[in-house]
Design a protein around this nucleic acid. Structure first.
Length: 264
DNA sequence: ATCGGTACCTGCACGC
DNA sequence: TGCGTGCAGGTACCGA
């Protein structure tokens, strides 16, 4: 579920709560979400103080000092709830000197990992979708041969974009999701770059998109879903030209676009 | 390098 | 009501 705007919103709601908190105890209830030894991991966490939190693409990274980090990826249905109440889908609970953080995840695609350094997956992420400069974006795009949509979803190419915001950004930039990345002209690259920034910024301002599961660290839903132009709007009129929005499958992902506004 | 397919999980909407 | 099917914001892995 969560893409960059959702993870950023979770970060912003949790940061003031978690910074400076000391871990008293930790409980893991899923061997899928926390792959390591639960007891050992809980032992290593005990007594640690959260020095800071940051977002890396769609990962939340908690700095525990001594080059130790706890990385959390929310997968599709992960929720981090400050002072949440444990329920049937609770996969982890962090108890602090003040307050408690509950991790719920219905589908268990999320991951919680404790590392001495950043896990390779995080270290190998491409530039952040909101931080990359236009020139670098253009250079990286032109070095790739594939279709633009799978490329934007590739976290090693660019980190943070997911299915919703990729569809929305391509629509805004009037680029077909199957356009070949390396053949995009300067004007279209510029439009795409701007579209990505604008969509992500607007989504963060709206607290993210709550299509089904997503809520922020305080349990509040976002409302950017009401501003989606194409995602989840198959058959409905394009806001710009009235043509019915089409849904196709690209890279095994539902893909929504306007066949008239977005030409190859 | 890239692509397509599969796998991992669970719940829900929908059609019959 | 019940059952089967397809779909869902995620990533990883395999072979081509």
């Amino acid at each position: 579920m969560p893409e960059l705007p959702e993870v950023e919103t979770v970060l912003r709601t949790l940061e003031p709560r978690l910074r400076g908190r000391r871990v008293l105890e930790t409980h893991f209830y899923s061997r899928l979400v926390m792959r390591g030894d639960p007891e050992e991991t809980a032992g290593r966490l005990r007594g640690r103080v959260i020095r800071g939190l940051e977002r890396r693409g769609k990962f939340l990274v908690l700095d525990l000092g001594d080059e130790t980090t706890l990385t959390i990826h929310l997968g599709m249905t992960g929720r981090l709830l400050w002072r949440g109440t444990p329920g049937p889908y609770t996969r982890a609970v962090f108890v602090f000197d003040r307050g408690r953080l509950v991790y719920d995840d219905v589908r268990q695609f999320g991951r919680i990992e404790l590392f001495g350094a950043l896990p390779g997956r995080v270290a190998r992420l491409g530039p952040d979708a909101l931080s990359i400069a236009e020139q670098e974006f253009a250079t990286r795009l032109h070095a790739r041969r594939g279709h633009i949509k799978p490329l934007l979803l590739n976290q090693m190419f660019l980190s943070g974009m997911g299915n919703i915001y990729t569809d929305e950004a391509l629509y805004r930039a009037r680029i077909h999701p199957r356009a070949i990345a390396s053949r995009l002209g300067r004007e279209r690259v510029r439009r795409l770059y701007q579209a990505i920034r604008e969509i992500l910024r607007a989504a963060i301002e709206s607290g993210g998109s709550s299509v089904s599961d997503y809520v922020d660290g305080e349990g509040r839903a976002g409302f950017f879903q009401f501003q989606h132009q194409v995602y989840g709007r198959e058959g409905k009129p394009c806001p710009a030209c009235g043509t019915p929005i089409r849904r196709i499958v690209i890279a095994q992902r539902g893909t929504h676009y306007c066949p008239k506004c977005q030409r190859v």
